[in-house]
Structures are given as structure tokens and as C-alpha cells.
Design a protein around this nucleic acid. Structure first.
Lengths: 344, 344
DNA sequence: CATCTAGATGACAGCGCTGTCATCTGTCAA
DNA sequence: TTGACAGATGACAGCGCTGTCATCTAGATG
């Protein structure tokens, strides 16, 4: 209870307490089926009695691998990634694996460096956001002696496995939804301008081009991170510049919320004067007034599936490389209901 | 370039390439001043040539410690903690330390378990959210052979060091601000109901009691996580139950935003019919329409300072135990401007 | 010129596990 | 009864570093 000895119990202490060899204790801990029932009980009791906690470092060194899954994402504050992380954490729970988490800050060089550090620890698996790694990063991943899952996006050339959805298709569908709702001058608002944002822009552009409505002038972007403030500022600029704009497709719900507030300030009715569609279907999109149409993506599920794929590969259940498309859904809310009632 | 050998270079490979002993290579990497200039150059060249990356596991095992700082927070999705994490990441950058990050999910037992796992790896330091650890957790931390920083909150009995602010004082000030603005029937909205939320409630209660305005009926809470939806729902319930309420102090800006939308739906003017104050000063509070009064807390700074304290202790610069109060600031915006103009 | 000393380097024994191989049972078919 | 064999356990050599101690310089000192 109290007065715990400072030195932690080692495997040898447990072995002595249980009257067996270190090997047997190690086996019991790694794969209990290898040890006779009675022995196992005795050992588990000894573990409890000594308060033994295995040394990860020793284990990793001796076995040449670590029960660690490396996770590399570009941001720890962007809700998009925190949702995925939550999925990963919940998927990992109880599996005995640990997460080693790195923050690439949207910088490919930083990603490369972190990747080197991570891989040097021989992780059991890697989860990495995006499909746009540098050539060097791709090679590092391909040469890694562990399964790799790219998440957030899907593309034609997985390093190993992928779970995500097509940002281009999602943006295309969302833009199409605005067109179908009767909006004619649909603008694009983007922030951060990472590869996924660019792909969403491509989807927006394609949808409008198909409808014969694309106008390169109706685009307002910033390299700053997505935020409500940025959304308001971008829309203010846009509205001043292109008063004819009657709908906005925002790359992120943060931006959309900013547009909503700016519209409120300008007395633009949403959805009558302005259609508004966001992206990601953050929690507030459903709760706002009016509700903001958005594109739901299955971020927690993405994290869970990524872990699942990794574990499946590790225990040999599912040795195949896979690309999992989790899809998306345009969730129509009142913010895009405006022109629908009007005659086309 | 290509065709990298599968086996990673080891210390011995570098030593051979540089024509020195392993000890010297190790020294060069740990403390370059111990090695002659010329030798050092030769070794660094050999490191580069072999692509050597040290094995963390071997290093940790041999030295008995890991250059890892453990970070335990209750949530990875709550912006409050992601901001702190960002501060921690930026503070750690370039120091050679790694972050090992655990998610306690607001569950003290989970926290205890993670603490055991973390401490078993002999981290260089621990950062842990809150001051309300279980007795066992406190003992584990106190017995840990590393510096510990409790963050988010401050209290009378630091395990070692603390950096945070008084949630009670902050809530008191925010509530006082509502009273000073002329609101008379000030309600409280809370979610999650973790220890910090409870302390904020205590501050709210004290401020209203001092003003002779406390009414236990004007409190609406949920154990669910804070969200915009929850804010709207809580306020809907509250407004139905207590129509006399003319202001709301929300435990979190998420809730406040929900209240704002619900007020909009009900045609309650903010700030004339309803004063609204949030907590945390999330980015959207300044961008919303009207702007939402909130309590600014220095979360990134908190993370940075926590790392700073840890590092200071580790290199002996600052061996003292410390409690750092980062303070807070009530940021008044239009959402609480209503009754100010009216005669008291 | 012998002695001392600081600076630079090398030798080597672990750190606490895992994995391989060897050993020792008891059981069962021939 | 014997050999074969699967099941259960033990012995032991590393995994790739670090830290201690020993060794070997080249001045500095008297």
C-alpha cells in the first residue's frame, strides 16, 4: 500500500515470487495459452503482488518492435483531425497498443522529419493524414517494415492502405446541391489551401463548369487556417467585389459560420438572399439558426477503420492492401432552402 | 539514395565509419563538448553518411530514462485542451523531447491506469490536466522520479508545479460583469460537470449571492460534453421554466453559441432581452453577431509555460516548485451590452 | 627532467526484456 | 514396453545503447 519501494519490480522479481523462470513469466504476459493454467494463475498473482509493470524500452529493444502506432496529422486544433484522433483512440483502446502522435503543421518537411523519427522506433503501424506525401516520405513509408494507412483522402496510389473519401466528389456534390437549389452565382471560400482544400476546389469548379456557371472571379481564399473570423472576412471581401453572388460553398463549416454572421450583419437573408453550404458537418452546423447545409464525413469512423485495418494486417486476419472509401453525405439544411421554392 | 539497406545503421557502424569507438560516438551525440572538434566533425559526417538514427528503446533502456514528456488530458476534441496541446507542442519543438499523449476521458480510473503506464516508462516529466487527481494518482505522481506540472487550474496543494488560473475567480468576475451590466436574473448553464465546471459554478454562485441575486432554480446542466446543440437545448429548457431569466452565464462558449441561436429562434434580442456570457473566449466568440462576451484564458501560453517549467527543472536552471497563475480576462462584447444603457 | 593534470578516448558491463533452442515431463499408439 | 511426440518450462545469448572506469596522450609545473 504505502511506502512503495522505489525500484520497480522486474521480470526476475515476478519469476522469483512465482517460482518459475523469467521465460515463463514473459510467455504468460505475451501469450497466456503457452503456459499451463495453474502456472499462469500463480504468475498473474505474482505480477499483482509485485506491482510489476513491463519496461517498454526493454521489450522494444529485445523484440525489435514496439507496440506503438504512429499517427501523423497536420494539426491538433482543427476539429477535423481531433475527431479522427478520437476515433483512433477509441479503436486502439484495450488492444495493448500505444499511440505516438506527431503534428506536421501542414509542412511536408516537418512530416518527413517526424516520419524518420517515428519509423526509427519501429512502430507496429503508421497512420498518416493525406495522400500527398513527398517522394521521400512515400519511400520511407514504403520501405517501412510495418503496415501504413493513409487517411482523410483517397487516391489512386496507396502506399499500402487507405481510408477516406473523395474530397473532389464531395465538393462536386455540395456545389451541385447549390445549383439544384436554384442558386446561380455560386462562390467559393477557402482557407489553409492544403491539398484537400485544392481538391475540393476542383470539385466545385467541375460542378459549376458542367452547369455553365463557373466564374473564376467568385473565389476568395486565404492561406491562413480556417476560422469563423476568416470566413466573415473572406465573405466581406467577396460580397463587396461580387454583389451578384447568391450562394457560397465554404471549404469548412468554420468559414460558413463566419459567412452566416457576416450575412447577418449585412442584412442578407440566409437562405433567401444567400445560399450557404459548409463542409465537414461540424456539430454546430445542425444547431445554428438557420441550420447550415454541410457535407458529412465520417471522421471518427475513419480513425476506427484505420486502426482496424492496421490490426487486421498485424494479426494476419486481413493481409490485403485496401482502399476504403467511407463516402460522404450532403446534409441539406435551411441555409440552402432559398431558391428551391422559386421558379427556375 | 535508393535501395537503402534494410538494416538500420547502428552506433557501431558509425563508430567504424569514423574510426573511433562507440563511446565517442555516443558522447558526440549526447554532449558534443566532450569530444575534440576534429573528431566530432568526422563523427557527424559518418552519422550523415550512414543515415544513423538512434534507437530510442536502447537509449531508454541503457540510460534508465526516456526523453519523453507524458501529457494527460481528459479530451482530445475539446478545443480547450487542443489549444493547450498546441502550446505544449510548440514549446517542446527543437528540445529533443517527445510527447507521449494520453486521453483520460474525464475518468479518474482511466487517468490512474494511464499514469501507471506512463510512469513505468520513466518519462522525463509529466504534464497532467487538473488538480483533482485521486489519492492514488497523487501518490503515483509524488513518487515519480520526474518533475510534474498540473495545468488548467490552480489550487492550494500542487503535487509539484502548477500553471493555470482560478476557475472560481474567473466565473465570479464574469458573473459580476453580468450583474454590473444591469442584468438581474442571471442563470447558469453547464455541461460535462467536471471539477473545473463545478468550480466555475461556485464562482457564479458566490458572485450572485454577494449581490443578493442567487436563485438555485436558474441552473440548467447536463453531464454530456459541451456543445452548441447542448447549449440550445439547455437554454430552451431554462427559458420555458424560468421566463424571468434575463442573462445567462455559460460554462463554455459552445454552450453560449447554442444559446445565441436558440435566442434567435425565440426572437429574444441579445443583448436587450438576454445577456449572454460564455467562457474560454473561443475564436468564434469575437466573430459572432453579436459578439459574445467571454472569459479569455491563456491556453496556448499555459502549455508553453508548463513545458518551460519542466525543462527549467530538468536542466537545473529553476529547481523550485512553483505555482504560476496565468490569470484571465473578461472580454466584454455586445452580447452583454443590453441593460448597461438602462437605468439601474 | 620527473611529476602531475586535464582532456580525449576506449573497453566493457550491464539496462530488462524476448526469442531460440534445449530439456523434461506425461501420454499414447504400435 | 518402447519410442515418438506434444506440451510445458528453463537457460542463455543478445537487442543497441549508456555510463563508469581505465588508459593514454600532451602540456604545465616545480
Amino acid at each position: 500500500m504505502s511506502g512503495t519501494k522505489l525500484r520497480r519490480a522486474r521480470l526476475a522479481d515476478v519469476a522469483r515470487a512465482a517460482g518459475v523462470s523469467e521465460s515463463t513469466v514473459s510467455r504468460t504476459l505475451r501469450d497466456p495459452t503457452l503456459v499451463a493454467e495453474a502456472t499462469r494463475q500463480r504468475i498473474l498473482a505474482a505480477v499483482a503482488a509485485t506491482g510489476y509493470v513491463p519496461s517498454y524500452a526493454a521489450r522494444a529493444l529485445a523484440s525489435g518492435r514496439a507496440d506503438v502506432i504512429g499517427v501523423l496529422v497536420p494539426s491538433v486544433t482543427n476539429h477535423v483531425f481531433t475527431d479522427v484522433l478520437e476515433g483512433i483512440y477509441s479503436g486502439i483502446e484495450g488492444t495493448g497498443f500505444d499511440i505516438q502522435h506527431g503534428n506536421t503543421r501542414y509542412q511536408p518537411e516537418l512530416e518527413e522529419g517526424l516520419l524518420r523519427v517515428f519509423l526509427s522506433q519501429r512502430p507496429a503501424g503508421m497512420i498518416i493524414a493525406g495522400v500527398d506525401q513527398t517522394d521521400t516520405s512515400r519511400r520511407l513509408l514504403a520501405d517501412a517494415q510495418c503496415p501504413v494507412v493513409q487517411i482523410m483522402d483517397i487516391g489512386p496510389e496507396p502506399v499500402d492502405m487507405m481510408v477516406g473519401f473523395s474530397h473532389e466528389a464531395a465538393a462536386h456534390a455540395a456545389t451541385r446541391h447549390l445549383v439544384d437549389a436554384g442558386y446561380r452565382n455560386v462562390a467559393f471560400l477557402g482557407a489553409q489551401m492544403d491539398p484537400r482544400t485544392l481538391r475540393r476546389f476542383a470539385g466545385y469548379r467541375a460542378a459549376l463548369s458542367e452547369a455553365g456557371m463557373f466564374d473564376a472571379g467568385r473565389v476568395e481564399t486565404t492561406a491562413d487556417p480556417s476560422s469563423v473570423t476568416a470566413g466573415a472576412a473572406l465573405f466581406a471581401r467577396l460580397a463587396d467585389r461580387c454583389p451578384e453572388v447568391d450562394a457560397v460553398f465554404c471549404n469548412n463549416d468554420d468559414l460558413a459560420l463566419g459567412v452566416l454572421f457576416e450575412a447577418l450583419r449585412r442584412g442578407f437573408d440566409v437562405p433567401d438572399r444567400l445560399g450557404l453550404c459548409g463542409f465537414n458537418d461540424f456539430e454546430f452546423a445542425a444547431a445554428s439558426e438557420p441550420g447550415i447545409t454541410s457535407v458529412r464525413t465520417n471522421r471518427r469512423e475513419m480513425g476506427r477503420r484505420a486502426v482496424e485495418l492496421l490490426l487486421g494486417r498485424l494479426d494476419g486476419t486481413d493481409p490485403a492492401a485496401r482502399v476504403v472509401d467511407l463516402g460522404f453525405e450532403v446534409v441539406a439544411r435551411r441555409s440552402t432552402a432559398g431558391r428551391a421554392a422559386m421558379p427556375a
